[in-house]
Simulated assay, not measured.
Amino acid sequence: MGAPVIESLRKHTKAYLDCHLMVTNPLDYVEPFGKAGASGFTFHIETSKDNWKELIENIKSLGMRPGVAIKPGTSVEAVYPLFFSQVEAETPVEMVLVMTVEPGFGGQKFMPETMDKVRILRKKYPALDIEVDGGLGPSTIDMAALAGANCIVAGSSVFGAPEPAQVISLLRNSVEKAQLTY
C-alpha cells in the first residue's frame, strides 16, 4: 500500500491511519503520506540512524504522529536517543513498534523473545505507546499485552478468521485487561 491508498481511504473515514513504512529511505515518503492524510508515520531505526531528527521534524510538520520500529535483531537501546533530544523539550517519537517477526510478509510465527524489548520499554517509558506487529492472534495476544504492548497490529489472524469481529474483540479485551496491571 502507498500514499494513493491512504488518500482514497481518507475520503471515507476519519479513523486513525497508522502507516508503517518498511523502506530504505523513509524521508522520501513523508510528504506524500502527509498530503494523503496519514495519521501516523512509523519508520525503521535501522534505515534512519543518520537522519532521524530531520525525519521526525518533517513528520511532525505535516501533522503526523512519529513512530519508530525495530526489527527482532535490533537492540532496544537503538531507539533510546529518539526519546530525549538536547534541543527539544518534547519527546521526539510518540510510539515504538516492536516487530515480533522479520519484516516483509504476513503469516510468520510470533517470536516470543521480542517481548523482552516490550517489557524493557514499558518499564523505562510507562506512558509510551508500544505497538507490536507480527504473528499476533488469540494464542499470542496475552503474552504481548502482559509484556506491556498497548497497540496491536493483526493481519492474518483477523482477515483469515471465520469471524473477524470476534478476534478483534478478543485482542482488544486482552490489551485492556493487561493495562490494568501496569
Results as ranks from 00 to 15, higher is better:
1 M>A: 14
4 P>R: 09
4 P>D: 06
5 V>A: 09
6 I>F: 10
6 I>K: 10
9 L>V: 15
10 R>S: 11
13 T>N: 10
13 T>C: 12
14 K>F: 07
15 A>G: 03
15 A>E: 07
16 Y>K: 10
17 L>A: 11
23 V>R: 06
23 V>M: 08
24 T>S: 13
26 P>K: 04
26 P>D: 09
26 P>G: 14
30 V>G: 05
31 E>C: 08
32 P>R: 03
33 F>H: 13
36 A>Q: 03
38 A>E: 09
40 G>C: 06
40 G>F: 00
40 G>Y: 00
42 T>H: 13
43 F>M: 06
44 H>Q: 13
44 H>M: 08
45 I>G: 07
46 E>S: 02
46 E>P: 00
46 E>R: 00
47 T>G: 02
48 S>R: 02
51 N>M: 02
52 W>L: 07
56 I>D: 01
58 N>I: 07
58 N>D: 15
58 N>M: 15
60 K>E: 15
61 S>Q: 11
64 M>R: 00
65 R>A: 07
66 P>Q: 11
68 V>G: 04
72 P>H: 05
73 G>S: 14
73 G>A: 13
74 T>E: 01
75 S>N: 14
76 V>M: 12
78 A>V: 07
78 A>D: 08
79 V>F: 01
80 Y>Q: 04
81 P>M: 08
82 L>C: 07
83 F>R: 11
83 F>H: 12
85 S>R: 00
88 E>I: 05
89 A>G: 15
90 E>Y: 15
94 E>F: 02
95 M>D: 11
97 L>R: 01
98 V>T: 07
101 V>A: 06
103 P>Y: 01
106 G>H: 02
109 K>P: 03
109 K>Q: 08
109 K>N: 09
110 F>D: 12
110 F>H: 09
110 F>K: 01
111 M>K: 13
114 T>W: 00
114 T>G: 04
115 M>Y: 00
117 K>R: 12
119 R>K: 15
120 I>A: 10
121 L>R: 01
121 L>D: 12
123 K>I: 09
126 P>C: 10
127 A>W: 04
128 L>P: 03
129 D>W: 01
133 D>S: 13
133 D>L: 10
136 L>S: 06
137 G>N: 07
138 P>Y: 09
140 T>S: 15
141 I>C: 11
142 D>M: 14
143 M>N: 12
148 G>P: 01
148 G>S: 11
148 G>Q: 04
148 G>M: 04
151 C>T: 12
152 I>H: 05
156 S>G: 02
158 V>L: 02
159 F>G: 02
160 G>F: 08
162 P>T: 10
164 P>T: 14
164 P>G: 13
165 A>T: 15
165 A>P: 00
168 I>R: 00
168 I>G: 03
170 L>P: 07
170 L>D: 10
172 R>E: 11
175 V>E: 02
176 E>F: 03
178 A>K: 01
181 T>E: 10
181 T>M: 14
